[in-house]
Computed example of a mutant assay.
Amino acid sequence: MFTFPLHKMREIIARGRADAAANGGFRNPYYGLRPGEGEKPGLWLVGDEGVYLLSNGILAEGQRALVCYADECNPSTNPDYWLYKRQHFGGDDGIDFIDAESLDALIKATRGCVQLRIVCLRNEMQIYVI
């Protein structure tokens, strides 16, 4: 289970949209293996050195994407982040795309929430707002 502040998730999506508008669209999370998939507003759940959300707009030369680490899996604040990542995300690196429209609908249906929670299971990902 990974928990993120909802306001940071919104900032990441807004930054991705701004980067896309300024730089020609959205990045493909599948390294070009699935053209057209994930090239729309949203965010990426990334597992590598910790687990974090990442903006997906195309970046200008030298620009860095906006990132927010999961409360439970931040290398700067949790010395056991790698064990937690391995248990809840897996030992390999990976990226999962989460569509902004779906997140917006979920948030509108559950007003007053302040956190996004993502649970990675063997064959699915569950997303909640708290």
Rank of each mutant, 00 (worst) to 15 (best):
M1F: 05
F4L: 00
F4D: 09
H7A: 11
H7M: 04
K8P: 00
M9G: 03
E11G: 06
I13A: 06
R15S: 12
R15V: 13
R15T: 12
R17T: 07
A18K: 13
A18D: 14
D19Q: 12
A20G: 09
A21Q: 15
G25Q: 10
G25H: 09
G25I: 14
F26M: 06
Y30W: 14
Y31M: 11
G32Y: 08
G32P: 09
G32E: 02
L33V: 08
R34M: 14
G36A: 07
G36T: 10
P41C: 11
G42K: 03
W44D: 14
L45E: 15
L45A: 06
V46R: 15
V46W: 09
G47C: 12
G50D: 06
G50E: 04
V51M: 04
Y52K: 13
Y52D: 07
L54Y: 14
N56Y: 10
G57H: 03
I58H: 12
L59V: 00
L59C: 03
A60C: 02
Q63I: 09
R64D: 10
V67Y: 10
V67T: 14
C68H: 11
A70F: 01
E72S: 04
E72F: 00
N74K: 02
N74H: 02
P75R: 04
T77M: 04
T77R: 11
T77Y: 08
N78Q: 10
W82N: 11
L83R: 15
Y84A: 01
Y84H: 13
Y84C: 01
Q87F: 02
H88G: 00
F89R: 01
F89I: 04
G90L: 07
G91P: 03
D92Q: 12
D92I: 09
D93R: 15
D93Q: 09
I98G: 02
I98R: 10
I98S: 05
S102F: 11
R111K: 14
G112W: 07
G112T: 00
C113L: 00
V114W: 10
Q115E: 13
L116D: 00
V119T: 10
V119A: 05
C120D: 04
C120W: 01
L121H: 05
N123Q: 06
N123E: 14
N123C: 01
E124I: 00
E124A: 12
E124D: 05
I130R: 04
